[in-house]
Design a protein around this nucleic acid. Structure first.
Lengths: 192, 192
DNA sequence: GGCAATCGTTCGTTATAGTGAACGCAGAGT
DNA sequence: ACTCTGCGTTCACTATAACGAACGATTGCC
């Protein structure tokens, strides 16, 4: 039993500290007061103060409200920009006929960088939604064959091939009778 | 006033539904039971069941624990599957026993970005040249096995694994009795 | 069949994230 | 000097996220 209840908060996890710092950073970039951000996000000033101080443990609803109020993607609040040490993302097993589409890695700051692994069974057809202007998308084929690229000029690709194209136009990925395992690297200019 | 307290949960936000689906998807890819994932993440089965069902509103500590147990980046759980949005570098043939080390692509501006393909026959040992401070190096294994990473803390990698580590420290790549085909993505911050 | 294990779910309770109402501190009028 | 207004923080309380303990369903083994 903790004594009746004090205003104390938990010791603060490293994640909480990082997220809190990020919130404050973005808020100050926007030139907002903490009172104003709290109002826009529909939170109490108390909660925001706790979070920015790195004390506390927000829920995703809270973070989502903050991200919307700050007009940034939710993931930006959680993106660990500089990793202290090595990060290992284990390979995953995939059921037969399933499409694997995994974000393996994300870096923001300067340009943002995302590394995806895309695994397509035979006869798959995916439509890529255009990204922000200036985005460049890279496909690197680990195994198999596919036809991919801008919808108006797709290219046949085989193992070891690399295709780079503007990600702000419509584009497609399509496998024939053979499955394909593709690494996708997406480099986007940062959004102000 | 809600009646005294039932097992009911909130109506479920769209974010909660998306996150829950993602957790379940990743867990099943790993071939883990929900009981096992709960155990590894240090959560109760009840909590996990609620979350995967899209009911509930997890805290970042909870999500962090799950991400670690699933060995994926925290942001992956929250990434809105923004669908991925021409230069062609053809794959090259490689003679038996030869080491392939090719720069496939280089981008500058914001972050500079290099994509390499590294093909190592069995029993190869390479020393990586340290890059600029702040550089992050990513290894994505297409096939085979190798031991790689910072010289003082190398990691065993298999097909589909991604390893990210600071590129400004000495690092090595070493294959055992098996060859390896690796994609290397090097991201360096631009010096203002 | 009978039993034991493990699964994923739903229950009632407990710990805690978020709240509203204070507080002290600045700067701007009057 | 004295109010006012808005800032960022700390307090006691309330709403609720996470918990432990059930549950029925399934599977495997004897």
């Amino acid at each position: 039993m903790t004594p009746p209840a004090s205003g104390d908060r938990r010791p603060a996890s490293s994640t909480a500290i990082a997220v809190g710092a990020k919130i404050r950073q973005r808020r100050e970039q926007r030139g907002m007061s903490s009172a104003e951000l709290a109002r826009r996000a529909g939170l109490s000033k108390a909660t925001l103060s706790q979070l920015e101080g790195g004390r506390g443990n927000p829920t995703i609803e809270t973070l989502d409200a903050l991200a919307i109020a700050l007009r940034i993607p939710l993931t930006d609040l959680l993106a660990r920009d500089t990793d202290p040490g090595p990060v290992l993302v284990a390979g995953t097993d995939l059921a037969d006929g399933e499409v694997g589409r995994e974000l393996l890695r994300r870096i923001s700051g300067g340009n943002s960088l995302e590394i995806w692994r895309l695994r397509m069974p035979p006869g798959t057809h995916l439509e890529g939604v255009p990204h922000a202007t200036g985005t460049i998308e890279h496909l690197l084929v680990s195994s198999g064959h596919l036809t991919a690229g801008p919808t108006d000029a797709p290219t046949d690709l085989g193992p070891g091939d690399l295709l780079a194209f503007a990600g702000d136009a419509p584009h497609t990925y399509r496998t024939g009778p053979e499955a394909a395992d593709v690494t996708v690297v997406i480099a986007s200019p940062i959004i102000g």
